[in-house]
Simulated assay, not measured.
Amino acid sequence: MTDEVKGVLAMIGACMIWGLSGIYYKLLDAVPPFEILCHRTIWGFIFFLCVLKYQGRLRVLPSAVSTPRAFMIVAFSAFIVSVNWFVFIGSIHAGHATEAALGYYIFPLAAVLLGAMFYGERLGTMQLVSVGLAAVAVVVLSVGLQVGPWVALVLALTFALYGALKKSMITGPVLSVTAELAMMAPFAIAWLAMTHLRGDGHFGADFVTSLMLAFAGIMTAIPLILFSYATRRVSLATIGLVQYLNPTLQFLVATLIFREVFTMWHAIAFGLIWTALALYTAASLRRGSAARKAARAAGTSGTVI
Rank of each mutant, 00 (worst) to 15 (best):
A221D: 14
I218M: 13
D206Q: 15
G201H: 02
I222R: 08
T195Q: 00
M219R: 05
A214E: 09
A216G: 12
F215S: 07
I225C: 14
F207T: 04
T209D: 14
T209A: 04
T220A: 13
I218E: 11
M212V: 03
L211I: 07
A214I: 13
F215C: 14
H196E: 15
A214T: 12
T195K: 00
G199Y: 02
D206Y: 02
L211C: 12
G204W: 01
G199W: 06
L213S: 05
L213H: 04
A205M: 10
H202V: 05
L213W: 03
M212A: 09
A205V: 12
I225L: 06
I218Y: 09
F207L: 13
S210E: 03
H196V: 14
T195S: 01
F215N: 11
G201P: 04
I222K: 15
L224K: 03
I225Q: 11
D206H: 07
A221G: 08
L213P: 06
H196L: 10
H202F: 15
V208R: 11
L211W: 13
A216K: 05
F215E: 05
M194L: 04
F207P: 00
A214F: 07
T220F: 12
F203L: 10
A205I: 11
L211A: 08
L211S: 11
L211F: 15
G204Y: 02
D206M: 14
F207A: 04
M212G: 00
P223Q: 09
M219H: 03
G217P: 15
S210Q: 03
I222V: 10
V208D: 09
M212H: 01
M219E: 05
L213R: 10
I218D: 08
A214W: 14
A216P: 08
H202N: 15
H202P: 07
L213V: 12
F203C: 02
S210A: 10
A205L: 13
S210I: 02
R198F: 00
R198H: 12
I222C: 12
F207H: 08
H196A: 14
A205S: 11
T220M: 04
A214Y: 08
I225G: 02
S210R: 07
L197V: 10
D200H: 03
A216T: 14
L197Y: 00
A221F: 08
A221E: 06
I222A: 09
F203Q: 13
A216V: 05
T220E: 09
M219P: 14
A205F: 09
D206S: 15
R198V: 03
L224P: 08
T220N: 06
T209C: 07
V208P: 00
I222L: 08
H202W: 14
S210W: 02
A216R: 12
I222H: 10
G217L: 09
G201E: 02
F203T: 01
H202A: 06
L197A: 10
F203G: 03
L211Y: 05
V208E: 10
